[in-house]
Structure formats: structure tokens, C-alpha cells
């Protein structure tokens, strides 16, 4: 557990590093052709402008709808199937090689296929996000659940636990931190899927904003949208990390 003082000093150091980064960015940009690199202040100003005139907020809203749909489906389905597969050996052995194959497949390769199957709407983009995130969640959940020691199950059975009790008291609480690791990975991968979908399927949301800014030589807007999506990703991963720490307290890991 961090003390209050050391938590403050961590925040302070992080902020200081970010401020230094911004200064460095500003310094480099002032010596570079603004057609290639927009300065920190110009980028920040453009973000504020795009937010005020609603372009950025609309793009974000549209992207988040796609992203959260795909991601939450990946989490719910991934964790559920992962736990079931960990409990049912036959299914696991049967599906293992498929899961390994799909986990290793660069999902971008599937985008043309999804396009020909489903066209350009909302659903295929959510599906791309889902596919990017799903296998991280699934794989980590299965591996986590399988590392449960048989002794733990023996204790549960000794106290006359049924299958439902095994899930509630043993399987789910044990697997949660592993699943959250997968979810955190999935958050990052899903974001890649989001932008890829918005680039290659139908242009929309932040992806479209990036492409348009590039076409219009609006360099500050281009950098601005990239910064926004990076910050979004970092914030979501932060939430994931927080949940992981909360549910892994029993493992006694240093926070």
C-alpha cells in the first residue's frame, strides 16, 4: 500500500514528466516545418476548437458507441466462454488449437473478409473491435482458470459445494485477476481494431477525423485526434489496472 505522501510524489513526477514532454514537443515543433509537425500549443488549441464546434465530440461519441459495443461483448463472451472451457475438458481440448490460431492471427487480415460478409455499417465495425479484443480476454481467462490448484476444488467438495458454489466461491474469484489482465490487453487491442475498422470499413468517428485532417492538410487536427485517442486508450487501461489491483489484492502483489 502506498502512503499518501508517496502517492502525491508519484503524481507530481508523472505530471512533471508530461510537462517536460510538452515543452520538448514545443521546442522541436518550433524548428520544424508546420506542414509535418504541429506544435503542442497549436494542437491543444485545435482540440479545444474541435471540441467546441462539436466535430470532435460527435466523432468521439460515434467511435465510443462502436468501441464499447465491441469491447463489452468481447469481455462478457470471452470471460464466460473462458470459464466454461476451463471447467469442461472435452470442449477445451477440442477448441484449443482454434483458439491458439485465432489468438495469433493478426486480426487486420480478417477485415476484407468481414467487409465482404457484412458491408459497411455499425455492426461490422463493432465486430472488428470484438475480434481484436476477444481472444486476449478468452486466452487469459482460460489460462488463469486452469492454473487453479486442484486442492482448492478438493476443499470445496469436502465442504459439499455444488457446481454453482464452485463457480461463486472458487472459480470466479480466483480467475478474476487473470481475466482483468486479458481485459486490459483487450482494451488496447480493441482500440487498434476501432481505428482499423474506421479506416478500412466505412469512415466514421475518430478514424474519419484522422483521415479527413490528413486530406485537408489540417496538421493540428491530425495530431489532435491522435492525442485524443491515445489519452482515451491510456485512461481506459488505467481503469483496467485499477480494477485489476482491486480484485487481486489477495495475491499480495505490490501495487
Amino acid at each position: 500500500m502506498l502512503t499518501r505522501a508517496s502517492r502525491w510524489s508519484r503524481w507530481a513526477i508523472s505530471l512533471l514528466a508530461l510537462a517536460l514532454g510538452a515543452l520538448l514537443w514545443q521546442a522541436v515543433a518550433s524548428r520544424t516545418n508546420p506542414a509535418f509537425l504541429s506544435s503542442f500549443t497549436a494542437t491543444a488549441a485545435r482540440i479545444a476548437e474541435l471540441a467546441a464546434n462539436g466535430v470532435l465530440t460527435d466523432a468521439l461519441r460515434s467511435s465510443l458507441a462502436v468501441y464499447l459495443t465491441g469491447l463489452s461483448a468481447a469481455i462478457v463472451i470471452g470471460v464466460t466462454i473462458g470459464l466454461v472451457l476451463a471447467r469442461v475438458r472435452l470442449l477445451r481440448v477440442a477448441l484449443e488449437s482454434y483458439i491458439m490460431l485465432l489468438y495469433a492471427t493478426p486480426m487486420v487480415a480478417l477485415i476484407p473478409f468481414i467487409m465482404s460478409m457484412m458491408g459497411f455499417g455499425f455492426a461490422p465495425k463493432a465486430l472488428v473491435v470484438f475480434l481484436f479484443a476477444f481472444f486476449s480476454v478468452l486466452y487469459n481467462t482460460i489460462e488463469g482458470a486452469r492454473s487453479l490448484k486442484p486442492e482448492m476444488l478438493e476443499v470445496a467438495y469436502s465442504f459439499r459445494s455444488g457446481e454453482w458454489g464452485v463457480w461463486r466461491d472458487v472459480l470466479v474469484p480466483y480467475t478474476l485477476p487473470f481475466a482483468l489482465t486479458g481485459i486490459r490487453q483487450g482494451i488496447g487491442r480493441g482500440l487498434v481494431g476501432l481505428v482499423a475498422g474506421e479506416f478500412f470499413l466505412s469512415g466514421s468517428g475518430i478514424g474519419l477525423l484522422i483521415m479527413q485532417s490528413e486530406r485537408d492538410f489540417d496538421v493540428p487536427a491530425l495530431y489532435g485526434s491522435i492525442v485524443v485517442i491515445a489519452v482515451l486508450g491510456a485512461a481506459l487501461m488505467g481503469v483496467g489496472r485499477m480494477l485489476e489491483n482491486r480484485f487481486a489484492a489477495w495475491r499480495g502483489l505490490a501495487r
Binding site: E151, E154, S158
Partner: peptide
């Protein structure tokens, strides 16, 4: 009504 004390303790680390 039968209880076992295990050689390996058998405590649930998450509880």
C-alpha cells in the same frame, strides 16, 4: 458434518 483439516492448509487465498 464431516470436516477435513488439510495437509496443504487449503485456505482460499482470495478470502
Amino acid at each position: 458434518g464431516i470436516a477435513m483439516v488439510f495437509q496443504h492448509f487449503g485456505l482460499f487465498p482470495w478470502k
